[in-house]
Write a protein that binds this DNA or RNA. Sequence first.
DNA 1: CCAAGGCTTTAACTTAACGCAAAACCTAAG
DNA 2: CTTAGGTTTTGCGTTAAGTTAAAGCCTTGG
Lengths: 223, 223
Amino acid sequence: MNLISVFTSHPFFEPLAEHEKAYLARHALVRKLAREEYLATQGDCWPYLFLILEGEIEAVKVSTEGRPLIVTTFVSGDIFWGPAFFEADLPLPISLEANQPTTVVIWSRSTLDPLLAKGGIGWALARLMLRYMLRANVLLERLAFQPVTARLARLLLEHFQSTESPAIPRTLTLDDIAARIGTTREVACRSLYYLADRKIIDVTRTELVLIDRESLIQLAGET
Amino acid sequence: MNLISVFTSHPFFEPLAEHEKAYLARHALVRKLAREEYLATQGDCWPYLFLILEGEIEAVKVSTEGRPLIVTTFVSGDIFWGPAFFEADLPLPISLEANQPTTVVIWSRSTLDPLLAKGGIGWALARLMLRYMLRANVLLERLAFQPVTARLARLLLEHFQSTESPAIPRTLTLDDIAARIGTTREVACRSLYYLADRKIIDVTRTELVLIDRESLIQLAGET
DNA sequence: CCAAGGCTTTAACTTAACGCAAAACCTAAG
DNA sequence: CTTAGGTTTTGCGTTAAGTTAAAGCCTTGG
């Protein structure tokens, strides 16, 4: 397998010796997911750790009324796990859903167990977890303190940042946007046009064009 | 110092050898906090880990407009840390404020460093962090999906659970309640009377009496 | 070319939640 | 006893956000 090359390059596995990496590769479960396919669902007891080789996986929560909220997105190279990986019987607090065709490598708790006893990996896990905790924290802050418009503004800023061009094609549907900022389709749409009305962005059917970055930043609150 | 006895009894330090525990005790910083005193404030770079010996510490976030939100409460025996304990320069996402007279033991990153390299502690930290992440997750879910009344109902249930008696004295001020469920004084008060109006609880100036647990549970949503 | 299905947009309505302000109440200090 | 300061309670006006419904637009597949 050429899987080993992937591990070697990933900083997470750096502390491991060669034969340990080989062990990992032998026991790895490679799984391909289609768009909209679930890796695991909320409430499952899922004692695995995964690494994304290609694609994206969204961590999504669903309310009792069925409204989805995308908590975070894991991209290629990211590592995550189910709580049951650490302690038996802890249910998965979110669903893991592929965004697009995605390939992941999965290890079960029992496979990784012998390696975890060693120092390096435990520490690395703690660091990773810290990162995710901080992400969750940011989300919490926004949901608790910021209105929909501000959350939308921030989402847009992130998208505009990732490209040089001031225009981004409308790849996300309104439902996607709504799930990301924690609201509904309709409200997301209204907010978009609220921004358009004050000449902060330009909304067309095919793209969103940034007009006034300053105002957008201001609307998004601090940072 | 009799500090050592505290460590020995704490499962977190179980993996350590006796001489290591002694090392810990030697380098421990014991700090007493008065009520309302801050251990550290949001935005600080705070590379420490602490253990509560006595008292309580609240993790509180403050919005730009000054509205506080209590994210979680650490009680006697709990261990927590600043993100900078793991990675330099990460700011504290919350403030740590004593709820009551509180005693904590603090270690700096540099002190603990030699012990962290060893496996056991890293793993324990990862497990602890997982717990906190799950807590944050629950809070997120409630803020995102549940109305104020449901959040209040759940808070009350937790309080009623902790005592046998159906009556609890009003030790929390409305501001406290509001900060815990993420709203304002006035709204919290109104919600309280909303519950009283439908005979679910009884509100007097001195105590809250549980009348209809079933309804309260139902209002609180699942669980 | 047409029709179906999905996505977007708008409008009208409803309501939960917030802010302001004032009154009521309680406690502790003088 | 009185007052000052803090807390609780209530009324009122405002608004952000969710809901429902319907219309419009675009793409795709027959």
